[in-house]
Structure formats: structure tokens, C-alpha cells
Amino acid sequence: MSAPAPAAKGSYALEALTDDFGFYVRADALLAERRSPMQHIEILDTPLFGRAMRIDGCFMTSERDEFFYHEPMIHLPAVSFGRPRSALIIGGGDGGAAEELLKHPDMQRVVLAELDADVVEMAREWLPAVHRGAFDDPRLELLLGDGRAFVEQCEERFDQIVLDLTDPFGPAVALYTREFYAACRSKLTPGGVLSLHIQSPIHRPETLARIVASLRSVFGVVRPYLQYVPLYGTLWAMAVASDSTDPLALDAAAVDARIAELGLRDLQLYNGATHQALLAQPNFLRELLAQPAQAIVEGDALDDPSLQADSMQALRVMPV
């Protein structure tokens, strides 16, 4: 691992979401960098977000804004379920999702299946403010390997499954198919919940619609919800899916009562009011999801609309 490299004044980490839109984040230093057999991992020191992780030029998480992503991904489904005792995370090598799940007092076992050991090692060393020691919690079991293979082969059932994945392009498409969602459904306990991110309704609406169609072809209850994630530079979407648990069945007072009963602490975003706000769908999203969309099935290939030029992935200097 290389020593921290100071960035020149005016250095920015650039990310393109599509051919038409992108953003930059000021970076003071490249703290660590590693090219694993699978991907390029960086830890940047930024004035706005603190330490931030990028994978293949895309921002994944940061110290100061991780709660915008992890809290709604974990607690909206978990509180809707009630008192989860077991959970499976596919991906999530930064440890942020595990840390949120382990806040639940009845949680006895969290399995984290991460494909890339280097992501875990980098996060463990450089992002303690994200995982907050979750990797050392005895309730957490870390499995390094193919998460899809684990789901298909394991006989255990979980109250919550979290798909904390990279974007659905290239090999990752296999984790967004109708067949994989059906495999996940078979590993949920009665009333169990699946949660996942489903892309941006602004920049990747067609992909979002196809993911929702895939979920609806498998689960009886599918609730997409919206959240702005500062580090992602845009409005982002997530979803909860279940055979019977419906987060819309809880009003704000009921959510706050459950949070109090569970003794959930250190929540910076999630409460009864935000539970309702997250699930409120603006008209443009309703119209998008009302249109016919084809489920993603085995063998499908989705085109990544993001720019992949090296100049847009590297830490570089822009005129200021």
C-alpha cells in the first residue's frame, strides 16, 4: 500500500454519471490505492466528506455522508419487519450496512458476503468512521467469495437480505436478475425483507424501471423509495421487497414507537417522518413505474451509460 500522496492545490476527483452529467469532489490527498484482481480501489481525503472510497472511479462511501445511504437502506426495511434477528449482506465490504444492522437489539447473526477481500481490508484500515468496529463484532460472519453462489447454496434463512452492490453493469448484472431475486426470496423467513439500491431515476430511469419490474415478478410487495445521496451527486433510489411486509402500513407515529422500543440510537436521518417521506413518490416516478418494463433475466446485458474514460476516473487537476 502506498504512502499518502498529497494532491496539488486545485485537485479534484471527477465522476461522470452519464455522457451528459458528472460532478467533482475536491481531494487533498490520495491516502491509499490498491488494484485488486477485480477492481481499482482508492481512499481519498476530501475537505467536504472526509475519507472517501472509490472503486473503479466511482464513489462508494465516505465518512461524513454514509448515513444518507446506509440508514434508509437498512432501517426502513428492518423497522418495517419488526425485530430482525438475522441478516445477510451481499457486497457491503465497507462495513457500513453491517454497522447499521448490528444496532438492532435482537440481531443475533449478520453474514457479510463480499467478493473482494481488498475492499474489506482497505475499509477496515482507512474507514473506521464508516464501519465503527462492525468487523470485530462477534455477531458478524465475514465470507469472502461469490455472494450469488452463497445464496444459491446456503440452507439458512434470514429476516433481512441486503444487496449492497456495485452498479448493474458487466458481471454485476447477474445479481440484478429475476432469477437471483427468486433465489433471495427462497432464503427469507416469513415476512422477511429484501433491500437494495436501484439506481438514479434522473440518470438511469430505464435501468431503474427494469430492476423494479424484476422485483415485481418475484415479490408480492415492492416499494421503491427515494433518497438524495450527496456523494453520489444525484437523487438515488432504493427498494424494499417482501412477500407480506409493507413499509407503507406504518405511519410516522408507529415508526417512532418502534424506534424507541428497539432503542435504536445514533440515527442521523431515519425517523417516522423520514420513513414516510422516503416512500412518497413524486409524479414523474409514478409515471416511470407505470410504463411497461422488461424484467432482467439471465443472459441480459445492460449498457452502462457512464463515461469510462481514464481521464474521468483518475484524480487529476482541473482549472479553477
Results as ranks from 00 to 15, higher is better:
residue 51 R to V: 12
residue 258 R to A: 14
residue 95 G to W: 00
residue 91 G to M: 06
residue 275 H to L: 10
residue 296 I to M: 06
residue 184 C to S: 03
residue 183 A to D: 01
residue 30 L to M: 03
residue 152 E to D: 13
residue 202 I to A: 15
residue 148 R to P: 15
residue 287 E to V: 13
residue 284 F to M: 07
residue 193 V to R: 01
residue 21 F to L: 03
residue 214 S to T: 07
residue 255 V to E: 06
residue 12 Y to G: 00
residue 256 D to G: 13
residue 81 F to W: 08
residue 34 R to P: 09
residue 219 F to W: 06
residue 170 G to D: 03
residue 247 P to H: 04
residue 31 L to C: 05
residue 50 G to M: 00
residue 142 L to R: 07
residue 93 G to F: 00
residue 30 L to H: 07
residue 311 S to Q: 13
residue 318 M to R: 10
residue 224 P to R: 00
residue 312 M to N: 10
residue 124 R to D: 12
residue 44 L to E: 08
residue 63 E to Q: 14
residue 257 A to P: 11
residue 13 A to E: 00
residue 12 Y to S: 09
residue 277 A to W: 03
residue 315 L to E: 05
residue 80 S to F: 09
residue 279 L to T: 05
residue 244 S to L: 08
residue 313 Q to P: 10
residue 226 L to C: 14
residue 81 F to K: 05
residue 142 L to K: 04
residue 54 R to K: 11
residue 91 G to I: 01
residue 240 V to Y: 02
residue 34 R to F: 12
residue 149 A to Q: 15
residue 144 L to V: 15
residue 205 P to T: 04
residue 225 Y to H: 03
residue 253 A to Q: 11
residue 282 P to A: 05
residue 181 Y to C: 08
residue 278 L to Q: 02
residue 207 T to H: 02
residue 272 G to S: 06
residue 225 Y to W: 11
